[in-house]
Amino acid sequence: MPAHIVRLVLLLAAFMILAVAARNYMLDPSYYQFGNYRGDAVIELAAGDPQFRGPAYCRACHAERHTEWTAGAHRSVKCEVCHGPAREHPAAGPLPKPDDTVKLCTLCHEAMPGRPAAQPQIVIAEHPVPHDGALQCLTCHNPHAPKIGGQGEPAADQSAATPVTAETAATAQISARLVVLTTPCAPCHGADGRNASMSAALAGNQRAALVRKLQDYRSGTLQHPVMNAVTKSLSDEDIADLAEHYASLPGGPTQ
């Protein structure tokens, strides 16, 4: 064989050996293990640490809260939605308690076009208890069972949760003006003013006593975050009508 042919063959052979060696050296052993990719990449991606641990993890220490939460209207909202991912809690320190609940709660509950009708929503400006900065949602609502008077609430009184509608107003024989006036009262004091489990019963009290109380709340002589806020905009006539109304209702425990 002529020498130049031998050289060419040797050169070709050397090139091929180099190419195969380079391929073997550079290619990850797990490449082509399952397909045209590195098999070990799957192992690496599956190895991460979960940050969200789920309610069962929280229950191990906070069983009482867990029970309260599962009975309330927020049972579909898991612990970590508001408190953030548990990660290494408790070893890594406490989880945050949201301080601005107005900001947090309105993420889901601010009335907004696009939200399904089934979602409980409030027009902030029209909320019975006005939000004036000092008052937070959790002043009145237990975040773990937020429905006032609902199941799992300290005040397990269904009548308190009944909003004043035209129908209930008719049965109570109160005027349209009183419907508006009593709307902020009903969530805590009950539509019939007889709920005393989470607040004072109003029905059956003396008219003068109710007037004095309302005036004291309005002036700030009596301090109560919710009562001060809801009485702030009441006129003397409003107070007189409210007192007249609740004094005229039959007292006694809620039926």
């Binding site: 060419l8 063959v9 052979a13 091929m16 050996i17 073997n24 797990s30 082509y32």
Partner: peptide
């Protein structure tokens, strides 16, 4: 003729090496 033979020989050698590495990865799979 010679060049063709050389190419075939080279390809067979490389092919054998490739086949070996393929067999290895199949084995690990």
């Amino acid at each position: 003729r010679t060049a063709g033979k050389a190419l075939v020989a080279g390809a067979m050698g490389g092919g054998a090496l490739l086949a070996e590495s393929a067999a290895q990865s199949e084995k690990s799979a």
